[in-house]
Design a protein around this nucleic acid. Structure first.
Lengths: 143, 143
DNA sequence: GGATTTAAGGATATTTATATCTTTTATATA
DNA sequence: TATATAAAAGATATAAATATCCTTAAATCC
């Protein structure tokens, strides 16, 4: 459903939120990719994308690393949109450019409700909530 | 969400169901790819996959073509499983091999209900129902 | 200022998905 | 039986996603 990049991105963001709840120190690439079990160089690229999309802040140089602007609420849908684009949430399942209630593809009406619930859920699930669940050992970043 | 192959496959199956409701004649590759607006050679490969998966029957040679065994109910989920595999419906969103209620990924519980509704819907939407909607001009194969 | 560390940026490699083309096999009909 | 037609099968081409590597820029510490 999501691209591999997007999977990593969600884990990255949730992990930084989790770590930041415990300590205000910046977090570097190494501990991040170790924690979420992702290839380091590739994860670096994803961190770059997230930073460009302003979902994440970064500081270069010694003692540098990544952190979240705590004032901003970030939901899973924000991350998905930044990495995979908005088509994955809003686009037609069968590839129509304009799949509306009039002129719909053969799945449009069948699956409308379910897609909308999914999208709403991703729009309402924020990374701090997830981070708390990890603290309580109710969810994990890797197997 | 679905691969391009799977998008075409869903349209192929729905179109054959639609055509077959009007006439019992076999349907060839050309009218199929024309009707669903898909690349011909690529569509041929997908027809092959669907035939191997026994979702579709084929006859070679002059007057050959494709048809559906009307006795069998086929749902969208069958097509998705045949083309994209079962991971897309049952696998972990974040790539865990075993993402269960215990040891869940950070999205597992958050999105469990919505994924399950989506899956149920795909499991209960059959291609003949879709074909009827097309007949009534309530859905289309191409834009 | 020089050495070290860390993210950013650019180039390249690998794999998978998408797509096309050619040859082979099966069937019908003249 | 020869010819035409249509799907199956195999080979190849192209594009996109995934992944790695190397160099550059920014910040800290000595």
């Amino acid at each position: 459903m999501f691209s591999k990049s997007c999977e990593y991105a969600i884990k990255v963001m949730a992990f930084i939120a989790f770590r930041q709840a415990k300590s205000k120190e910046l977090i570097g690439l190494d501990p991040i990719s170790e924690a979420i079990d992702s290839p380091k160089a590739f994860t670096a690229k994803i961190l770059q994308q997230l930073t460009k999309a302003e979902l994440l802040k970064s500081v270069r140089g010694r003692t540098g690393g990544f952190y979240l602007d705590q004032n901003r609420e970030i939901v899973i849908a924000d991350i998905v949109r930044a990495i995979d684009g908005s088509k994955i949430l809003d686009g037609c399942l069968l590839g129509f450019g304009e799949c509306q209630d009039e002129n719909p593809c053969v799945l449009h009406h069948q699956i409308k409700k379910e897609r909308s619930s999914l999208k709403n859920r991703l729009n309402s699930t924020d990374i701090y909530t997830i981070a708390k669940r990890v603290s309580r050992k109710k969810a994990y970043f890797k197997e």
